[in-house]
Design a binder for these strands. Structure first.
Lengths: 227, 227
DNA sequence: CTTGGTTTGGACCGACCCGTCCAGATAAGC
DNA sequence: GCTTATCTGGACGGGTCGGTCCAAACCAAG
């Protein structure tokens, strides 16, 4: 109900509830997370939940927005510094490392939520669909930088390639969390990148970087290092 | 409780309940499907559910086995006739067509179940992990046939490639069901196959095929058109 | 027929669920 | 100070949940 509470105290309470709810939803699923669970985890009263979120659906909606912003924030930051194949591989390795830090559990919050609610809740489905679209655009932006730097052919379909990459991420995460084996994600990501390199301009070997060893490697145009 | 009831009547009842439960779970998710829902859908009594499945968990377990067998049966049959690139593309097109028949809803029963229960139920997680493994092996078998027929390099890592392909399937299905756009699956599958073709033997000389030319041989389907 | 295992119907229970309600606490504005 | 809006606590109700229990119905074997 209250997207943004007017007082500082209210905003803090709302934020605290959303964060705890997001953690619960990520751990046990949206359907298995009750309002009582959230109440216990946050030491909040039922009135607060209904004051800030209207009903249960509103709370889940807030969780979806929160997780989308979190994941997309991390991804946008990581992708912003991608300018060549090494950077892209480092980005992929980062995702594998992040999964291993969680012992191959949980997977992607957005993906898990999408699998759970896409067929039953139209509003949440659209929100998650937009999250995927934004994510895909972030990937597409990185690929465009690769293309501008001469690592991808000028006629490479960035929309298609970014979709392939995002599918590899989601599929790899699902396989990894199901088999409890992060190598499944690593392999899937490697496959996605291999597809991208199919569209490298100077194709000679499937997995070689363009430019060879003699030619000076084109460097990124505006890589803004984060502090 | 009763894996296989002793009487014909019992087996029929159990089967009827499992099928209806599977349909409900596929439509509204495992967590959102109550025993009462199953009772109403099957005109069964609560005693029957307890009699045949012990408890709710047993019913979900039966649903997992049922869906695994169903999906793997279809996939094994479709993959068994794959011998070249055209066949593989036809297999992929078949999955897209199947998804479109459901108006891009539902996705993969196994994948959706896995996303929901992998983090909360160890027994179901293992069952679904085995289902994925079996599926991967079926893909691997098709790829081995491609390799034997000279469409894949002899040093191609079939385990890795089949994992990439399965990840593309699952990721593509998740994106497609979330965005309600079957093209996402089509693109993901095309990307997966593109990765496979990365490992095609260098065309120039007929590759030394281990089995010789026992089977009628290659037309080289290189499906790389746009449109 | 009787017997005994199998299958089915449905009442019942305690726990939990979501949502409503009201009163008290807190703080902002005047 | 007072007023008003915001925030919080918690009891309450109606409904649903999974699970238990008992007895009736069914059915094949003797």
């Amino acid at each position: 109900m209250l997207e943004v509470p007017p007082t500082e105290r209210g905003r803090a309470s709302r934020e605290r509830i959303v964060q705890a709810a997001a953690r619960l939803v990520a751990r046990q699923g949206a359907a298995a997370t009750s309002l009582d669970d959230v109440m216990k985890a946050t030491h909040a009263s039922k009135s607060q939940l209904y004051h800030y979120f209207g009903d249960r659906h509103g709370l889940v909606e807030a969780v979806v927005e929160y997780e989308s912003a979190a994941v997309l924030g991390v991804q946008a930051r990581a992708l912003a510094s991608v300018g060549d194949w090494d950077d892209l591989n480092a980005w992929a390795d980062g995702m594998v490392a992040m999964l291993e830090r969680r012992r191959s559990r949980g997977g992607c919050p957005i993906g898990t939520l999408a699998a759970a609610v896409a067929d039953t809740d139209e509003a949440l489905r659209q929100a998650l669909s937009e999250a995927f679209a934004t994510w895909r655009e972030a990937i597409s932006g990185a690929l465009r930088r690769l293309r501008d730097n001469g690592f991808l052919a000028s006629d490479a379909d960035l929309n298609e390639l970014s979709t392939i990459m995002l599918a590899a991420i989601q599929g790899g995460l699902l396989l990894a969390k199901t088999t409890r084996d992060s190598a499944q994600l690593r392999t899937a990501l490697r496959g996605g990148i291999a597809t991208l390199q199919t569209h490298a301009p100077t194709v000679r070997e499937p997995v070689t970087v363009p430019g060879g060893s003699s030619r000076s490697k084109p460097r990124r145009g505006q890589p803004r290092g984060e502090g």
